[in-house]
Amino acid sequence: MIKLFNVSVSFYGEKKALDNVSLKIDKGEFVYITGASGAGKSTMLRLIYADLLPTRGVVLIANKDITNITPKSIPYLRRNIGVIFQDFKLLEEKTVFDNIFMTLEIFYIKPEQIENRIFSILRRLGLFSRRDTIVKKLSGGEKQRVAIARALINEPSIILADEPTGNLDPERGEDIIKLLQDIANQGNTVLVATHDKALIEKMPARTIYLKNGKVEADTKNE
């Protein structure tokens, strides 16, 4: 599903954020990417949703080479990838429904045409009763679930989560990881970038350790 061959990323010719990284992640896998701050976790995710292009190496997503993807093609790649952030990246003044609808609006669909689809995902994530609530009135856990709903509504095959539990208490964090693991069990590829070792120990899965932009360990190979 996701293949990186000798990928390096450096910003303005400075120290490499990723250094000669090669890895393969299969369809339906749930993978943690961990390491200290600045190890390259977020950079790796940004490469996958084409927010960055590699300085060297090749990136394949679903067997498609996106190493030199053109700006015009990026939207079509992103439609197949759901991204979740630590800071949620939601529009605080809009309702839960409207935030999720943004993902479908880009297909020129009216809200009433896909109301049931949004309601269904809101029910699945326990947010149905909050559908008309303005996002800023939600708790951190609820906001993260809205972000997950937004990432899932378009049924993407890849979910990327960048420190999704960073702003949540441990209990809420575990709920979110469990939810993401369930999503992986349904055949989606899920990558979670986190530095929370306790969480990884409690809810284990394949883990890729990054240090100074290099893959230090991959539990799949152990």
Binding site: Y49, P71, K72, P75, Y76, L77, R78, R79, V83, K89, L90, L91, M102, T103, I106, R150, N154
Partner: peptide, 16 residues
Amino acid sequence: KEEIKIYSLVGATRTF
């Protein structure tokens, strides 16, 4: 800006 970033994240084209 934030709205544009989110649209860009979810795959909106430049035209949109």
